[in-house]
Amino acid sequence: MDIERATDEELLAQARTTPRAFGEFYRRHVHAVQSFFRRRVRDVETAFDLTAETFAAALRSVPRYEPGPGPARAWLFGIARHVLSEALRRGQVQDRARQALAMQPLTLDARDVETLELLEDTPAVEAAEALPDEQRAAVLARHVAGESYAEIAERLACSESVVRKRVSRGLRTLRARLGESR
């Protein structure tokens, strides 16, 4: 199965046996989930903490997931709402799902916080997540991280002209997608 072209429901079904399928599902929706929490809690770190717990809880539920009448995204946001209400009720973010999965805590330093702030509320970044990997890496490196074409080329081990082409194609796709969503 071509994971990049699979529907969300197909990804979740595939995730029972293929870890990369859940990774793709995560990449498609992580910014939307982070934005959902960002509008509801006061700081970007707490929003990220809630996002991490939401995806961990979703991963734990993957073996029980059955496609229903609603989209898989609605299922994910149902989990997000539950994680948020639990956190508000108890006064702190729960980590049960991450503990059950034996995930290491992610600590955020100043640069991480800055990056999270930089990426929040940017529909273009969200749309960029759906680009093919090569284009996505090039567009985000050039226009979010502000790296030069030479730096990106060195990091991605390809020529500058290849990077320029990837950025150009990625931006063209983004323009088209953002234009559709307006």
Partner: peptide, 23 residues
């Protein structure tokens, strides 16, 4: 494991949000 971030416990010591744009 001890998670470092609580919902109401941590106030960032860094600058507030950037709200920047992508491209």
């Amino acid at each position: 494991r001890g998670w470092t971030l609580g919902l109401f416990g941590v106030v960032a010591a860094f600058g507030v949000g950037a709200g920047a744009w992508a491209a």
